[in-house]
């Protein structure tokens, strides 16, 4: 499902109409309506989806909001981890780059 390659200017979004999120124990489970797949999300994935559900963002503009949601600094949660999580979420369709806005 990944459409890459991506750049710093890629605008990402999560469609809240397409994904159901439910808390279960200390994780979030997500049901992706388009694929019918169910996913277990860790706190970082949940934060990314929540930020991108509130509005489309580039990676740079989303990063501080994500770190704020998980209450971690960029030293504790590196860009590499966040980028990797973006790409994993893109792979399963829970977030996607916005057409014409890469």
């Amino acid at each position: 499902m990944a459409a890459g390659p991506y750049s710093e200017r890629t605008v990402w979004a999560a469609n809240k109409e397409d994904t159901l999120l439910q808390s279960l124990d200390d994780v979030t489970v997500a049901f992706h309506k388009t694929s019918g797949d169910t996913h277990i999300l860790n706190f970082l994935s949940t934060a990314i989806i929540n930020v991108l559900t509130e509005g489309a963002e580039t990676f740079s503009s989303a990063r501080p909001k994500i770190l704020s949601k998980i209450q971690m600094s960029s030293e504790d949660c590196s860009d590499a981890i966040i980028v990797a999580t973006f790409l994993e979420l893109d792979d399963v369709g829970l977030i996607s780059p916005q057409a014409g806005r890469q």
Binding site: Q22, L24, D25, V27, V29, F31, T38, I40
Partner: peptide, 23 residues
């Protein structure tokens, strides 16, 4: 969550029903 993910493959209509089944 692990129990949830173990039960889904044993369902014969989870993917057909979608949202109500998940919820």
């Amino acid at each position: 969550p692990e129990a949830l993910m173990k039960l889904i493959p044993s369902s014969t209509n989870y993917h057909l029903l979608g949202e109500p089944a998940f919820t």
